[in-house]
Design a protein around this nucleic acid. Structure first.
Lengths: 224, 224
DNA sequence: AATATGATTTTTGTTAACAATCAGTAACTG
DNA sequence: CAGTTACTGATTGTTAACAAAAATCATATT
């Protein structure tokens, strides 16, 4: 008998979450913007309930801030926020390393190397959307290898915030040297290949400190 | 002019969250229980919307699992869940240490010592609710000292799950030796006093590995 | 003119009703 | 009688309407 692939119900709530999330990450919704429920119901063609529920989830995700009886606003990251986000990312990716530095096989490394190569192509082509997409794929692959759903969930929240921040960086620094990501990812793969946890932690810290300072600079340039 | 303290509106949603959370943590709602929205509306005297919104938040908190079109269930922790939760706790409390091992002042240590002393009293009195409460206060104090809201939020989520687990442990092992917490907390304070990050990380790992194995044992004893 | 007060509008919080889905049971078919 | 199909009750997903709070704007007062 023909084997069908499982069809999973995707609720309106989840669809709304995805739309608002990408709108924030891609900068169509600007930091500080008031997200009015009724305006979203008009645009999305759904009622307020799924919108409200989506906003609750996005607040938990750190992309939205809501005040009682006043509504939801696109989160405007402060300089401290940026530091906190990236130091948490270091903690999570270090934990990832501890969980899976001995788990990676040859084809895992091959996959990571392949991502790096594809990344190079997109950088020379200047295809920013793809650059970000592969960047996330690279890190998510490792995080998923940890097989710790908790690391996964926290990291996914963080990475949505970072995506928003990198969009801000791209606005402030249009000629940003994306090739840095190549050497970053390469040094991470090297550390994993050598099963050198300390080297991995050092690389994580170095990389995230740099990106954090870039994002702080971007915020200062744009925000005031 | 008289200075008033700010009065903050507490939504029905948040009240419902708190009630369900404590019901789960204190074991009135058992793992696997189907949480039927309409039965909660009856008991709480509110409509379904705040209940639904509360359940969404509790799912994010990891205390509730919900399946599409089937509803919400009290999360039944697996043995793997327990390992993941406590290794994440180690990661977070290590990050806490890195953030604030040089920040603590004399009165901070005095406060922590005082908590340990009060803890002893409650243990000899067999006052389990207070034991747990001070336990959380101890760790939360350090986490808040990190001044990283992200560490705070993630740790708070984790700690709600751990509270549920410790309730299970108490059911399975009624004569659990609570004095272990005293030596645990003492060794943490010692590490902080000596500003010895490695000692702190070792203590965190040792403590959480032990508690994790206790919780796994409890689950095996009860669950089958 | 600047500030405070009051009415109006907008927006959120909450409730109640409707639609779709699911679990279980009874009826039908071979 | 085994297995499928139709029905029933219960529960969730969604919509629409109502109530409360906040924001906006006009008016009055000093």
């Amino acid at each position: 008998m023909q084997s069908f692939s499982r069809i999973q119900p995707i609720s309106l709530r989840e669809q709304v979450v995805q739309q608002i999330r990408t709108a924030i990450i891609e900068g169509q919704l600007k930091p500080g913007d008031h997200i009015v429920e009724s305006s979203l119901t008009d645009q999305l063609g759904v009622s307020r309930t799924p919108v409200r529920e989506a906003l609750i989830l996005l607040e938990r995700e750190g992309l939205v801030v809501s005040e009682a009886n006043r509504g939801s606003f696109v989160r405007a990251f402060t300089l401290e926020d940026v530091s906190n986000i990236f130091s948490m990312r270091v903690a999570l990716e270090n934990a990832t390393g501890e969980a899976c530095i001995d788990k990676l096989e040859d084809d895992d490394y091959a996959y990571l190397d392949n991502l790096i190569e594809r990344q190079k192509v997109h950088i020379t082509a200047g295809n920013h959307k793809e650059i970000r997409s592969i960047d996330v794929k690279f890190h998510r692959f490792l995080v998923e290898k940890s097989e710790n759903p908790l690391i996964n969930r926290f990291w996914s929240e963080i990475v949505a915030q970072i995506a928003a921040l990198l969009n801000i960086r791209a606005e402030a620094i249009p000629d940003y040297n994306e090739y840095l990501a190549i050497s970053d990812h390469t040094s991470i793969v090297v550390a994993y290949r050598q099963r050198d946890l300390e080297a991995l932690k050092a690389a994580n810290k170095r990389i995230n400190d740099r990106v954090a300072s870039e994002c702080r600079l971007a915020i200062e340039m744009l925000g005031g």
